[in-house]
């Protein structure tokens, strides 16, 4: 199955578990992402969204399971995955321009960097102009506002032409107004070049507004194992929706269908008192797939021997 999945999708995550010691964080995550999709991952705090991102990025290892990008298992962080963090994305000792050309200079030997610099700068200025930052190119990151810093970080990541742009709460530290500006800004960029985005946020409205597809990750669900406190459950994907991209406007956030979807996701993913059964998850997205292990889901697999280990 993996072969066909890998050829069809840019990102495939299969049976991924992650735990820190006794604490299960992620439990049996399955998902696939098509090239050019803007997928957002949303969930209550502590559900492991950022952990999932770090697993894909290669910053941490999975406890078990597989992650493929373009059919190849992911390794340590490399140029096929770009990253924009909430903080520390920029190098404080380099000017805006040097931050943006850093990717190109790091790829060649230090002694040849000088002669190539002109070409790098030209390319970087094109990106900085798109980010509306050209006149700030010689400033230090600390001299820029939060929104501008994140625009530099996006330019820095995009110029390295990653297969997937990963973003971990990139607008989380910005004030609401700048945040909305940045949301529209990233959507414009994405509309123009349709790169694949994997965007993690705790802000449901942001996730719905930005995504062409939304994953809801949550630890609030139930399954065949019952409901007792003693059952340690890691977060799963409890909903997976296709989001129609309407004309770009912040007005979208007040449309009735937008609010309805927000309400339903809030109930299914964010309410600790509302425990949905694994069999009832809304995974009707055409690219959605899931393999359940015994004890988790439908009663059929329950009859399988308890020691059955699907990784074998």
């Amino acid at each position: 199955m993996t072969d066909t999945l890998a050829s069809k999708y840019q990102l495939v995550i299969q049976d991924v578990h992650k735990s820190y010691g006794e604490k299960k964080v992620l439990e049996d995550i399955d998902l696939t992402v098509r090239s050019g999709e803007f997928c957002t991952v949303v969930g209550p705090s502590g559900c492991g969204k950022s952990t999932l991102l770090r697993l894909i990025l290669g910053q941490e290892d999975v406890s078990s399971g597989f992650i493929y990008i373009d059919g190849k298992p992911v390794g340590l962080p490399s140029t096929d995955r770009g990253i924009v963090y909430q903080r520390y994305s920029l190098f404080p000792h380099l000017s805006v321009l040097d931050n943006v050309i850093l990717g190109q200079t790091l790829r060649i030997a230090p002694w040849s960097a000088r002669s190539k610099r002109k070409a790098f700068v030209d390319e970087a200025m094109v990106y900085l102009e798109r980010m509306r930052l050209a006149e700030h190119s010689h400033k230090l990151p600390s001299e820029l506002s939060g929104g501008m810093q994140q625009r530099v970080a996006i330019a820095q990541a995009l110029i390295a032409k990653p297969k997937i742009l990963m973003m971990d709460e990139p607008f989380g530290a910005l004030d609401p107004e700048t945040r909305e500006e940045m949301q529209i800004f990233i959507l414009e960029l994405w509309d123009a070049s349709r790169f694949t985005v994997f965007f993690v946020t705790h802000d449901l409205e942001e996730a719905l507004f930005l995504g062409s597809r939304i994953f809801v990750l949550s630890q609030f669900y139930t399954d065949q194992r019952g409901n007792g406190q003693q059952i340690r459950r890691g977060a799963k994907i409890v909903a997976d929706h296709h989001l129609p991209k309407t004309p770009l406007s912040a007005e979208t956030k007040r449309a009735p269908h937008f609010l309805d979807l927000m309400e339903s996701i809030r109930r299914d993913g964010f309410n600790p008192a509302h425990l949905q059964h694994v069999d009832d998850f809304n995974l009707r997205h055409p690219d959605s797939f899931r393999t359940l292990s015994p004890g988790e889901g439908d009663s059929q697999s329950d009859r399988m021997p308890q020691l059955w280990d699907k990784s074998q």
């Binding site: 995955r81 903080r87 790091l106």
Partner: peptide, 27 residues
């Protein structure tokens, strides 16, 4: 030095030595 910076430099194409001597050392 934040772990994020090291990861970021790797995603930008730095080698391991590059991270040490071209990203962290100047800082």
């Amino acid at each position: 030095v934040p772990r994020e910076q090291v990861v970021k430099a790797l995603t930008l194409g730095a080698t391991q030595l590059g991270v040490i001597y071209r990203v962290v050392l100047p800082q």
